[in-house]
Design a protein around this nucleic acid. Sequence first.
DNA 1: ATTATATCCCGGTTCTCCACCGGAGTTTAC
DNA 2: GTAAACTCCGGTGGAGAACCGGGATATAAT
Lengths: 145, 145
Amino acid sequence: MELSCKSEYALLALLELADHYRDNEPLQIRQIAAEQKIPDRYLEQLLATLRRSGLVRSQRGAKGGYILAQEPWKITLSEIVASIEGTDAQSPDVYRDAKSIEGMVIREVWQEAGQAADAILQKYTLQDLMEKRNSRQQLDLMYYI
Amino acid sequence: MELSCKSEYALLALLELADHYRDNEPLQIRQIAAEQKIPDRYLEQLLATLRRSGLVRSQRGAKGGYILAQEPWKITLSEIVASIEGTDAQSPDVYRDAKSIEGMVIREVWQEAGQAADAILQKYTLQDLMEKRNSRQQLDLMYYI
DNA sequence: ATTATATCCCGGTTCTCCACCGGAGTTTAC
DNA sequence: GTAAACTCCGGTGGAGAACCGGGATATAAT
């Protein structure tokens, strides 16, 4: 539904990391930020979040940076947005436990809609996004010629 | 995905209006707010939004209030949340800012997920919610006996 | 006509999250 | 040991959510 800057930045960064996954050497924040036009200080926070979720590993010190913690075809978009968007540990819903029946019914429908959206995000991996992008680039090239 | 207070309040209020749809006389904000435990001054804003979207009609003055503008089985949850949550005055995609190819691919997947969620909300009407609630109440009664 | 009753419209407030910046500390390669 | 990178901490500005209040306006009943 809502595509926040956070999620898009995170996806772009992970896509960049996926591109260099074969190199087996870390990519620095600065490079990712420059390549994808992301404010570096902000990207740093997002990568820290992704690290805490185990999607990315970091190496400190000189020649350090970030690497994907798993192969690109094992990371789904669902995991990414769950990591970045939804650390809704506890919502401040004190009054929500006074659950009317209508409230519960509404919540169930909402949950169903959320699961439908998540099902879509689960069937796409980083690898899929890369391939989608590559074939798109191919298409653009064809039109250019 | 995210179930905001706004949407839940609006749904509860419309459910209340649907309950009294046969009466053909308006329900006041105060009554809805009292019945569904909604802050009345806030509910007023939401009903104003729903009115501007044509989901609800209002009658001013004494004996005034709100009535559903359409039959309960003609109002989908999709319309409701679109009215209340989304003032997404969507501009034509042609004038969408020229982003990177990866940005476009990401946006397409996001759109697909959003449409999947909206499809769920489209297949439920106010009438459906009422029936869901009624059968739920029936169930609770059975357990109570 | 006047009045009681309701919506309508204009604000303001508090709070949280987003997007982002800066500094000080820590780890590591060289 | 120094430079290069991450790590942690806090802070800012803006937007929206979730409210509250006052006054203007419309309408039914007297």
